[in-house]
Computed example of a mutant assay.
Amino acid sequence: MTADRFERAHASLRGLAVGDALGSQFFVPANYPSLQARALPTGPWQWTDDTEMACSVLAILAVHGRIDQDALAASFATHHDFDRGYGPAVNRMLRLVREGADWRKLAAGLFNGQGSWGNGAAMRIAPLGAWYAGDPEQASHQAEISAYTTHQHREAVAGAMAVAAAAALVADPAGPKEPERLLDEVVALVPRSAVQAGVRRARDMLDFADPVTVAAVLGCGRRTSAHDTVPFALWAAAGHLASYEQAFWATAQAGGDVDTTCAIVGGIVAARVQSAPPATWQERTEKLPDWVPATAR
Rank of each mutant, 00 (worst) to 15 (best):
Pro278Thr: 12
Gly115Asp: 03
Gly120Tyr: 06
Ser12Lys: 03
Tyr86Met: 06
Asn112Arg: 13
Tyr244Met: 05
Trp45Val: 11
Val190Asp: 01
Ala133Ile: 09
Asp4Arg: 14
Ser12Leu: 04
Leu183Asp: 01
Val217Ile: 08
Ala143Trp: 00
Val195Pro: 01
Pro211Tyr: 04
Met123Gly: 07
Ala147Ile: 05
Leu183Val: 08
Arg124Lys: 15
Asp70Cys: 01
Trp291Ile: 10
Ile145Glu: 02
Glu185Ala: 11
His240Thr: 04
Phe82Val: 14
Trp131Arg: 04
Ala71Phe: 02
Leu16Met: 09
Gly23Thr: 05
Gly219His: 13
Arg66Val: 08
Asp102Ser: 13
Leu16Thr: 06
Ser225Gln: 15
Ala59Ser: 15
Asp210Ala: 09
Ala276Glu: 14
Ala271Trp: 01
Glu99Ile: 00
Val57Cys: 04
Tyr132Glu: 03
Trp103Pro: 03
Gly23Asp: 02
Arg154Asn: 06
His153Lys: 06
Trp47Val: 06
Leu206Asp: 02
Arg200Ser: 10
Ser243Arg: 06
Thr260Asn: 13
Asp70Tyr: 02
Pro231Glu: 01
Phe208Thr: 14
Leu128Arg: 05
Leu169Asp: 02
Ala54Phe: 03
Ala215Lys: 12
Thr51Trp: 04
Arg272Gln: 14
Ala166Phe: 02
Gly219Asn: 09
Gln138Tyr: 00
Glu178Phe: 00
Ala37Trp: 04
Ala197Cys: 05
Asp81Val: 11
Phe232Ala: 05
Phe26Asp: 09
Asp49Val: 05
Thr261Lys: 10
Phe27Gly: 12
Ile264Ala: 04
Ala133Asn: 08
Ala215Cys: 11
Phe82Tyr: 10
Val195Gln: 03
Thr48Lys: 05
Leu96Pro: 01
Thr213Ala: 14
Gln138Val: 10
Gly100Val: 06
Val90Gln: 01
Ala233Phe: 02
Asp228Pro: 12
Ala263Pro: 08
Met161Phe: 00
Asn112Ala: 14
Leu61Glu: 00
Arg104His: 15
Trp117Lys: 12
Ser34Met: 15
Pro289Leu: 11
Ser243Pro: 08
